[in-house]
Each structure stands twice: as C-alpha cells, then as structure tokens.
C-alpha cells in the first residue's frame, strides 16, 4: 500500500470527520444512562474507511482520532478507554469484514459490541476490579441497536455514487 497524496488527504478528512462526529455525539443524550454508553457515531468512519481504504488506513485514522480527541477533551485518563474500545472494534470489524457473507450491519454490530467490551476491559484495568463487568450485559444489548444504526448510516454512505467516485 502506498501513501499517495490522495490517500493521505482522504485519511486526514475522515479523521477530522470522526472527531467532529464524536463531538456532535455529546449533544445527544446517551441511549441508556450508563458510563461508556453512547451512539458510537465515530464508528461509522472506521467502518467506511475499513471498506473504502483498507485496515491500515482505518487504523491510522482511528489513532489520530483517539489521540486528538483525548487532547481536545483535555482528559488523558479517558485515552485508555477510547483507545482500547476503538482498537477492539477495528480488530473485530476487520475480521468480520473478511467474511463476504456478512453485510455492513453484521460487521457494525460486531464492532459496536467489541468497542464496549474493550472499554469495560480498560475500566477493569484502571480500577483493578472486576466490578465494571456487571455493566457489560446492558452495554452489549445496547450495542445491538447502536451497531445497527451505525451500520445503516454506513450503508447509506456506500450507496452514494458521489462518494464511490471520490474514493476510487
């Protein structure tokens, strides 16, 4: 894979978009009032980048988004949560996307579930306590809906002929 100017520009734009989406997301109330429970709109960008540009580019976008996001929020302790969550989501989605049988919906739901699992793992690590595991069942159930939602938005994006041309 070559880091052409086009690829670099697309990645930078998608990273900016992901940052903007995580910011917009804070304006919405969480679907369930639980720590770590959110819509996961930035996952739309990861999912899109994964199919459109491949896993290495998606990873680069994800790292820029997570690092800059923590910097802008001025919250270094939240970095581990978003990093573990986002990496777990990308890893699972990259694996699931290899199966040509699954649509973006299945990949997205798997990614959302992995994101929550990664965050709960980060919480258990920082707390040194298994208590956050009790949140996981609810978070997993919620991820079915948030994952389907992000999958739906991603499917809309992939249908756009304009975007198809832009990334070719």
């Amino acid at each position: 894979m070559k880091w052409t100017t086009k690829r670099l520009t697309l990645c930078a734009m998608l990273a900016a978009l992901a940052l903007a989406l995580s910011w917009v997301e804070r304006a919405f109330p969480p679907p369930v009032p639980l720590p770590g429970c959110k819509l996961g709109l930035a996952n739309i960008v990861t999912l899109f980048a994964l199919y459109a540009l491949g896993a290495p580019s998606a990873l680069a976008i994800l790292l820029v988004r997570v690092l800059l996001g923590a910097m802008f929020a001025g919250n270094a302790s939240a970095l581990l949560y978003s990093l573990l969550g986002a990496l777990a989501a990308l890893a699972v989605m990259a694996l699931l996307a290899r199966s040509r049988r699954l649509s973006v919906y299945g990949v997205s739901v798997g990614g959302a579930a992995a994101h929550n699992t990664g965050q709960v793992c980060a919480a258990m690590l920082t707390l040194g306590n298994a208590a956050p595991l009790a949140y996981l069942p609810v978070l997993l159930a919620v991820s079915l809906f948030t994952g389907a939602l992000t999958g739906f938005v991603a499917a809309l994006l992939f249908r756009s002929a304009y975007l198809q041309r832009a990334i070719r």
Binding site: L102, S103, G106, L140, R159, R168
Partner: peptide
C-alpha cells in the same frame, strides 16, 4: 473500494446479533 460491502442485512448478520445477545 477495497472490496464491495454487502449493503442489505443477511441471515449471517442475524447470527452475529444472536451471538452478541447470547
């Protein structure tokens, strides 16, 4: 596109959802 994604939910998607639910 690296590879074309399927855009309509398939039965295999339901399997992923079922695994998460389980």
């Amino acid at each position: 596109m690296k590879h074309e994604p399927k855009l309509k939910p398939t039965g295999w998607d339901a399997l992923v959802a079922a695994a998460v639910l389980l």
